[in-house]
Design a protein around this nucleic acid. Structure first.
Lengths: 143, 143
DNA sequence: TTGACATGGTTCGTATTACCAACCATCCTG
DNA sequence: CAGGATGGTTGGTAATACGAACCATGTCAA
């Protein structure tokens, strides 16, 4: 097996696992009336208080798109806006208590959904897998 | 480290790698005026000739959504519809030569985009990673 | 200090994605 | 062959996403 082949096989496996995980996340989002993007927004806000533009950059979206997403989530009471005290132009976004509660519930559901499959690996295999994935990941960002 | 912890760490890594791969696929799709969903449609049609409903099931979409997606891609000349000879109700979908050509180009771009990161792994690590991912994947489906 | 330019957000217009319900055509079964 | 099941399209609605235009605030240089 050449180095080319092993790369091709890896890309295939990685893309497949990507779609598989995405489908789980999409399903859990849908069960809670959240799009995959909204799910990611909540995930990012879990331990951050970014301004609208930062949020957009994190997700690779236009700021106008972000504005709408924040609007709808705010109307649902999941998050809130606040003027940034150091920059009158900027608007900080953060989870409301309700949003935090939902986020935690989603976290549990996601773990519950993925556990059966991943649990098929022996603990040392899991650590091995994490060890192989870690160096491939960009700067921390969780879900 | 308990078994719980190793599972949590694995889920985090997997979800992060999912978003990272998704962002690459989304970017390459966008550069070719394709949504992630359309990208997946092309990927599925690469080696299949499913009916509309099968395609929808593969992607976890409603058949009406599928109808629209096929419409637009057909209008762009990427794929075509044909009555299924064995079932007058069913409509088979398949790539046109132009669609096949685009799909191959996308394939190259995707590999080119992911190679730098994955190339950081030594060949035996790649094989190890594939070996760990394989058993987690559902029945074959590629991209 | 005050223009001029840059940055942060929102709003508007448009296309796409996605769902559901309703519908028509074809198939299958009793 | 009548009735129900299946496959697909259509129409209605909401969310997602982009770009362009716009306003407010910030920054820098003359």
């Amino acid at each position: 097996m050449t180095s080319e082949d092993s790369l091709d096989a890896l890309i295939d496996a990685l893309v497949r696992s990507t779609f598989q995980v995405t489908s789980v996340l999409t399903r859990i989002g849908a069960e809670n009336d959240l799009s995959l993007t909204q799910l990611r927004v909540l995930g990012i806000l879990r331990d951050r208080r970014p301004r609208v533009t930062e949020l957009a950059a994190h997700l690779g979206l236009d700021k106008s798109t972000m504005s709408g997403l924040v609007d709808r989530a705010e109307r649902r009471g999941l998050l809130a806006r606040d003027r940034n005290p150091h920059d009158g132009r900027a608007v900080d976004v953060f989870l409301t208590p309700a949003g935090r509660e939902l986020t935690q519930r989603l976290d549990v559901e996601i773990r519950r959904a993925l556990a059966p499959t991943l649990g098929r690996l022996r603990p040392e295999q899991r650590e091995q897998l994490v060890g192989l994935l870690e160096p491939l990941l960009g700067p921390a960002d969780a879900d």
